[in-house]
Simulated assay, not measured.
Amino acid sequence: MYDVVGGTIDSPDAETMRRVLDGLAEADDEHPDVSLSHESGWCLSAYASGLLVWENAEDNTVHPGEMHEVGRDEILRLFGLLAAGDIGALDGLPWRR
């Protein structure tokens, strides 16, 4: 997981993910998001505006998906799914591509 200033957190638990997401209050133009990556290459990036981006950094044939105005609790839930490796549940969501 990457916090808002680019710091790395290995294997974050739910409380750590919550704290990292809280760090979006300090987001700026240079550091606009926090993200969680899975060993499969899938990544969720969350922005203070409620934008959530779902992408696979290792597979350029898959277009990134977006959701807008996603609430904090839902972002935490989705981070939890990614941390657990539930790629299918995440990929099945209504992403705008």
Rank of each mutant, 00 (worst) to 15 (best):
W54S: 03
G80V: 06
A84S: 08
R18E: 15
A89E: 09
L76Q: 10
G50Q: 07
A57F: 07
E15W: 06
V70M: 12
D13R: 03
E55G: 11
D59Y: 05
R72N: 06
L90G: 04
S37Y: 06
W54A: 04
V5H: 14
E69N: 14
V62C: 13
A48D: 13
G23W: 00
L36Q: 03
A25L: 06
R97C: 12
D28R: 02
L21R: 11
L36S: 06
L51Y: 04
D86Q: 04
E26L: 06
L24I: 12
V34E: 01
I87Q: 01
E55C: 08
L93S: 00
G7V: 05
G85R: 05
V20P: 01
S35E: 09
L36Y: 02
D3T: 10
D59C: 10
H31S: 13
T61M: 13
A46D: 04
W42Y: 15
L76N: 09
A84E: 07
S45K: 15
D13L: 03
L44H: 04
L93A: 01
G88I: 06
L76S: 13
D29A: 15
T8R: 13
G23Y: 00
A14M: 09
L76M: 12
E66I: 12
M67S: 11
E26W: 03
D29M: 05
C43P: 00
A57H: 10
E30I: 07
R19M: 00
A89N: 02
E26A: 13
V53C: 11
E69V: 02
V34I: 08
N60I: 15
G71Y: 03
D13A: 09
D22I: 04
G80N: 07
A48I: 03
L36A: 05
W54K: 01
G41P: 09
Y47A: 09
N60W: 12
W42C: 01
R72Q: 11
I87E: 00
D91E: 11
D10P: 02
W95Y: 11
W54G: 03
T16D: 05
A89S: 15
A14W: 01
T16F: 00
M17A: 14
E55R: 14
V34R: 00
Y47K: 07
A83V: 05
S35L: 09
S35H: 06
L24F: 10
S49L: 07
E30S: 10
V34Y: 00
L44I: 06
E58C: 10
L36D: 04
D86W: 01
L44E: 02
E66N: 14
G23Q: 02
S37W: 08
V5P: 06
A83E: 08
V53K: 15
I9W: 11
D91S: 11
G50E: 06
A48R: 13
G92N: 13
G88L: 05
V62Y: 14
S45C: 11
E39L: 14
T16I: 08
E15H: 13
D28N: 10
P32Y: 10
G7N: 14
